[in-house]
Every structure is written in structure tokens, then in C-alpha cells.
Design a protein around this nucleic acid. Structure first.
Ligand SMILES: [Zn+2]
Ligand SMILES: [Zn+2]
Ligand SMILES: [Zn+2]
Ligand SMILES: [Zn+2]
Lengths: 138, 138
DNA sequence: TCTCTATTGATAATGATTGTCAAAAGCAAT
DNA sequence: ATTGCTTTTGACAATCATTATCAATAGAGA
């Protein structure tokens, strides 16, 4: 049987308070900064459990880090993520869902699952980036 | 200026001879087995260059490894991957392309890129109903 | 051939993630 | 509340893919 600990609740709480995706390390340092003495390994375990239970979304950043986010809904959905500040928008994609199923079936594949994520620069980060891009490069 | 070395050609060659996606480590050991004394770091560099130049596709396995595959076309495309045997089918997805652009633009995002991969069991692996499972589960 | 410099590769370093295991804490039954 | 059993924790070590070093090697143009 699974036991209830303040550590797991702290992770759930911290994840819920975070805007966008966070890494295990990031969440641990956030918790640590706010005074929690929770251990790093515990944060990894708790996030893994949450993701496994479907209470958190997880994806891999382009750099290979595992990122987590509190799910606002238990329905299947995807994300539009700012690769600069982490701002995340949950998006629906019925068209993509049916497309994935169709293309898999057409090629004889079964048990199809899919990874669909859109990365970009959000509006505010786009402005900030524009300032930096102007001028001599390198 | 970029120089031509037998190492880069060996990587290109080995990648082209590989069915499905391979990791840098995997390709290196394959080369090593076939008698090539190429160094591991060089394989990493060559694969990175190929991917950067658009001559190779890359994606991250669910375990976080970077995998590479020789591109059969230079056009943007996606993959349908058997998570048991690695068989890969290149797929086009104009609908997904436009959808990704649209959803990004609608939310004020710029420089949108996307990750779209479909994992499943190919026809033959479905029959075999094997165990070695790789990839996102349902 | 002769420079000049990009490239290589053995190895060290990095860094995220997982394994270890004794100590601490949940939970159910006394 | 106490006991007893078991899960969970956390400091630390271990793993493992990837990157950084840097002296030695080898393209390529003069
Ligand atoms: Zn942003
Ligand atoms: Zn979907
Ligand atoms: Zn297969
Ligand atoms: Zn695409």
C-alpha cells in the first residue's frame, strides 16, 4: 500500500504552483529555497510516481532533460512550450489524434502512441530576443 | 572550411547501412566491430554534424538517448517507429505541419519547431507479441 | 614539399538520473 | 499510546550518455 508523506504532498504542491514545465532538479532547488529540507532523490521518485499515475505530464526537453508539469486535465492533450521561459499552453489536437491513429493503422502498426510537442518563443520572449538579435553577431 | 576525412565518410556510410534509428554508441560499436578504429568522440561529432546539416534525422528515445537515422529525403518529415524492432517508416504530415504553425501563431509564439513521432508495434512484431518494449506506452 | 589549421581520439570531466542501505516514519493492530 | 512490520526517505556512491581537453595527426592550398 502507498503511504502518505509530506514529501510527496510538497512535490505535488510545488509542481502545481509552477508555471510551465520544470525539471526534477529545478523543482528540488525551488523547494529547497522555500525552506523545505526534502531530498533530491525523493523529488525524482515523487515526480516519477506522479507521471506514472497520470497526475503529471512529462516530456523531454530538446537537451534531454525530463520535464514535468501538473496536469490541468486528465484528458489526453499536448503542449506548446516556450523554450526560453518555459511558459506552456495546453493544446488540443483532435486532427493530430486521428492522423496518428490512421497513419499507424495504414502501415500495419498496432498499439500506437505518439509524441507531439511544439516548441517556440512566446510573445514576450520574442520581443526580448529581438533586442538581442539586433546588431553585430558572434 | 570543412575537410573531408574517412571518419566522416565511414559514419555516413554506416548510418546509411543501418535499418532504423541508432545511437552514437551503437553506431560506434558497429563500426568498431567491422574493424574501424574510429573514435567514439568522432562518431558523436559526425552524427551531430549530419543532423545539423539535415542529412540525418535525430530523435530522443524515451530513455533519453539521442538516436540517428540517415534521411532518405531532405524534405521535412516524421517517423513511425516500431518500439520493438526499430523498424522505421518515414511519414509525411502536411496536416500536422500546418496545424503546428497555426497553433503556434495563434498563441503568439514565433520560431516554432515541433516534435512529432509515432511509436507502435509493426505488423510482424505484433504477431510475435514480443516483450522487449521500447517507447511511450498507451 | 611546406605551412597552416581543422580534425581526430584517448581520456578526463560533466551532469542528470538511478542504486544503496541504514535510519526515519506511516499505518494497523494491539 | 505502544508495538511491530514495512514503506519511504535521504545522503552518498555509482552509472552512463555526452561533452570538453589538448597534444598529435592529417587535409588542402600555396
Ligand atoms: Zn517565453
Ligand atoms: Zn495526442
Ligand atoms: Zn517491429
Ligand atoms: Zn513536421
Amino acid at each position: 500500500m502507498k503511504r502518505n508523506t509530506w514529501q510527496r504532498e510538497a512535490v505535488r504542491e510545488a509542481l502545481g504552483q509552477t508555471e510551465g514545465f520544470v525539471s526534477a532538479q529545478g523543482l528540488h532547488s525551488a523547494l529547497h529555497t522555500s525552506g523545505s529540507p526534502i531530498g533530491l532523490a525523493t523529488v525524482y521518485r515523487a515526480l516519477g510516481d506522479l507521471a506514472g499515475a497520470g497526475d503529471a505530464d512529462s516530456l523531454q526537453s530538446p537537451e534531454g532533460e525530463s520535464l514535468y508539469r501538473a496536469c490541468s486535465t486528465d484528458a489526453h492533450h499536448h503542449h506548446l512550450i516556450c523554450r526560453n521561459c518555459g511558459l506552456t499552453v495546453e493544446i488540443e489536437a483532435d486532427a493530430v489524434e486521428t492522423w496518428a491513429k490512421t497513419v499507424a493503422a495504414k502501415n500495419g502498426f498496432t498499439q500506437a502512441a505518439h509524441v507531439v510537442d511544439v516548441f517556440g518563443l512566446c510573445a514576450s520572449c520574442t520581443q526580448a530576443a529581438t533586442v538581442h538579435v539586433v546588431g553585430p553577431q558572434q
